Structures are given as C-alpha cells and as structure tokens.
Simulated assay, not measured.
Amino acid sequence: MTAPATTATSTAADTTATATADTAASTAPSGPEALYVYGIAPEGVSAPGSAGVGGAPVRLLTESGLCAAVSSAPLRIRPRRRDLLAHQAVLDELAAQGPLLPMRFAVLSPRQDTLLSQLRADATHLTRQLDDVRGCVELNVKGTVVPGHFAELVRRDDSLRNLALRTRRRPDYEANVRLGEAIAHGVRREARRAARELLDHLAPFAVRTVQGPTDDEQVLSASFLLRAADERRFRQAVEDWAGTRGDRLALSVTGPLPCYSFVDPRPAPAGR
C-alpha cells in the first residue's frame, strides 16, 4: 500500500535550528528585562503587526543596513504554546517581506546597545547570509519506516525467505524472535536505502541541503533550501517519489519555513 507524502504547517516547536547573533544573545541580562530577538532582516522592512512573546509589541532596531526585530521580555521564558506560536507569527511576517535570518525561540540580548554593536561588528557576515537566502524558503522532509513492508522484503531476500521457511518447519520461541529481528533489521535497511535514494532525487532541486538526526524509526530528516519558485516542483517530486516507493518510507513535508537550517551563527575567525 502506498503511503502518500503529506504537508504540515510549520510551528515554532519545529524550528529550533540557529541564531545569528549568539555572542550578544547569549550574554546574561543584568536588568529585570531583556530584549527578545526574533530575527535579522535588511533595513527597510516594516515592523510586524503580530504581538510578540508575552503579548509584547515588536519593534525594529536598525544598524549598518540591518534591522533586528525585538520586544521586551522577562529574563526567564518558558516555552508555552502561545509564545511559541507568537514567535513563529512574527517570523512569518518578516519572511513574507524578504530575506530573514531567524532566531531560535527564547534568544535574548542584554541591552539595546549590545545588540546594535553586534549588528555593526557582524554587518558584512550577516548581509552576505541575507543575500544567500534571498528569494529562498526552507522545506523539511522526514521519512519513517513503514512496518508492513516485510512481506515483499521476505519474498525478495533469500536469507530471510530461508529463515522464514526454517521457522515455519520448526517453530519455537527463539526461532520466532530471530526471524522477527531479522525482518525488522531488513525493513530498516530498506528504508534507509530508500532515504538515500530520495535525497539523491531531491538534491538537484535545492540550493543547499542539510541532514538532521535520524534513528531506527525516523530514517530521514533533511532540510532543503529552495528558491521559492521551485517549491511547487519540489513538492511534486516528493509526491511522485512517494507514489512509487511509499511502501518503504512514509514521508512528511513541513514548510515553507524561514531558513533556520542555513544560517551560520557567527563569522569564521580570521585566517580560516
């Protein structure tokens, strides 16, 4: 049975990738409040109308041709659902206006002058990154093992077929365990192979690709930086692939997202 690819709406809970001003953002604030930093965009964007984390209004700080979207925030922020959604809503508004370097949830800067100084110091690096993601979106593709694939696998794999025949002739607990483990291993092996095939199939559509962590069940997690104009073709490629090999790998596509996975946190040291 074919498992079609599905599309999920992005939420802030899915986007824990990178910050672009960690030096300023990771300093412990000294006052009762700090600046919550949502992301960095080119100068000239409009301030988001959506309320920020904790319901605070979002404003823009401008320096060196860049602006940082910020709001006031307490020193400690718990990841409540409404705040995760507020974080994402602000980023969605900014991303709709052009290139954006998004921050992860709960990135704080101690003071306004500290953040402006960081923007000034890293202006060249940040501007280059904004140019790199201009006109792009991020889509994430995940693939999980389809357990029901074992029947076809046993028919095609001589060693598994022979093990199944021996177990049928002399059934006992240990033989059944060995057969079950061998089938599970084979199913995961086939799913991982399918994941590699899919990555090779999708890579030509993307500007860049970043692979995320996987495990025995989720054998594929990859983020793709796409030109916005290529998103439809990319989604169709996923659907077409799932239509022929979805019995091995159940796919989901999340996005479009701000380009979290394709932002470098800070400039490389001189001489590198």
Rank of each mutant, 00 (worst) to 15 (best):
139 L>D: 01
186 G>H: 05
221 S>A: 02
139 L>A: 01
100 L>M: 11
72 S>N: 13
250 A>T: 04
40 I>H: 06
118 Q>T: 05
86 A>G: 02
234 F>I: 10
187 V>I: 14
201 H>C: 08
150 F>N: 12
66 L>G: 04
136 C>A: 14
20 T>F: 09
230 D>G: 03
154 V>L: 09
148 G>R: 12
129 Q>D: 08
135 G>H: 05
191 A>K: 08
93 E>L: 06
213 P>R: 11
77 I>G: 06
21 A>I: 08
216 D>S: 15
42 P>G: 07
21 A>K: 01
60 L>G: 02
187 V>G: 00
235 R>L: 11
86 A>L: 11
257 L>Q: 03
214 T>G: 02
3 A>M: 13
238 V>Y: 10
34 A>D: 04
24 A>D: 12
143 G>F: 04
1 M>Q: 08
94 L>G: 04
126 L>A: 05
34 A>R: 02
220 L>V: 01
67 C>S: 15
25 A>T: 15
240 D>I: 00
223 S>E: 01
165 L>A: 10
266 R>M: 14
111 R>K: 14
209 T>S: 01
228 A>M: 00
59 R>C: 04
162 N>D: 14
45 V>L: 09
256 P>D: 12
262 F>H: 06
13 A>S: 08
45 V>R: 09
32 P>Y: 07
245 R>I: 00
60 L>R: 08
37 V>S: 04
26 S>Q: 15
206 A>M: 11
196 R>T: 06
18 T>H: 15
182 A>F: 07
156 R>C: 03
160 L>G: 08
254 T>Q: 02
58 V>F: 05
231 E>I: 10
57 P>T: 10
48 P>C: 12
22 D>P: 15
236 Q>Y: 03
252 S>L: 05
197 E>P: 00
184 A>L: 09
248 R>M: 04
3 A>E: 13
119 L>N: 03
181 E>Y: 07
128 R>I: 00
50 S>W: 00
241 W>H: 01
205 F>K: 01
135 G>Q: 09
259 C>L: 07
116 L>F: 07
115 L>P: 11
115 L>W: 01
271 G>C: 03
90 V>P: 03
261 S>I: 00
175 A>Y: 02
230 D>Q: 12
158 D>K: 07
17 A>L: 11
126 L>P: 06
259 C>V: 10
58 V>L: 05
